[in-house]
Amino acid sequence: MKSFSFKRAADPTNAVQMLGADKDSKFIAGGTNILDLMKEGIEQPTGLIDISRLALSVVKANPAGGVSIGALARNTDTANHPLIRQNYPMLTQAILAGASPQIRNMATNGGNLMQRTRCPYFYDLATPCNKRQPGTGCSAKDGLNRYSAIFGWSDSCVAVHPSDMCVALAALDAIVKVRGANGKERSIKFADFHVLPAASPQKDNSLAHGELITSIDLPTSACAKNSYYLKVRERSSYAFALVSVAAALDLAASGTIKTARIALGGVAAKPWRAEEAEKYLVGKKPGEAAFREAAKIAVSQAKPLSDNGYKVKMAERSIFRALTNAMNGGAA
């Protein structure tokens, strides 16, 4: 790998200053993604700024309601925190469905949001890839695209975002808190955090260079009781999702659905909210008929590629399954 400098940031202000001062530098948190990418020569930062020891690793209740999870809290600690287990069990399930225990012990929440696609061409310097090298072309679109997107892709890129955690965060309407080089804080709605490829797939998200994710805020949720995270993959653990679904329901006293949340993973460059399906479910009686119809609506706009037509069916059935399990109190 290319030689680089390594500096440790003293505090968040120092971190954003250091990063802002060098446009070719990057943060390193758990290092589970950035180091792999550097070894393969995909990322070639001249400097790494270590943020792993910043005091941004707490998970705490927000005075205004909800829970705030530190950007540098480890995935494992976040998943197992009582506030998360009690209030957002779907987030616990999603995190624990990802990677391996060893990786989750290292991985941070901020890093999880920022992890890059697992498109095989992105990882292979010998093949064209617009995301890695803009303008070279997209090898996946007419190539091996079994794992590629069925929603939101463009001719320039058909890659999917690999995170599990983010699918649950999208369903929970999380807010990403960031601090810029100028010290200014801003909040990004989760739905706006990751971006679709359009003509510039090199850009995964709306974070600007020099910005540091400080926390992820979870609004209060009434869905804890009826939520479920389902991940379908090619082996029982330690594999990225073919399709995943975060589903949550809040029921009215009458038993009908007050609000529904459905987010899909493995189908687009960002966690994909099935908003039409969510709307459809409002006011419906929970049950097979409504869930099947919602699932159908959710995939009606899907645009599969040559080898990933199965994802449409898989997504539809997985939504139905996840909603059913959510209704069963989150039992599989």
Binding site: R118, P120, Y121, Y123, D124, A126, T127, S139, G143, L144, E234, R235, S236, S237, Y238, A239, F240
Partner: peptide, 25 residues
């Protein structure tokens, strides 16, 4: 092992892409 026939190249040359069974399987 996935081969992209356009390039004649193996595209899953790693343990994340080539799935050997894990204990849970």
């Amino acid at each position: 092992t996935d081969v992209d026939h356009r390039f004649g190249r193996i595209m899953n040359p790693n343990l994340a892409g080539y799935h050997v069974p894990v204990n849970a399987d």
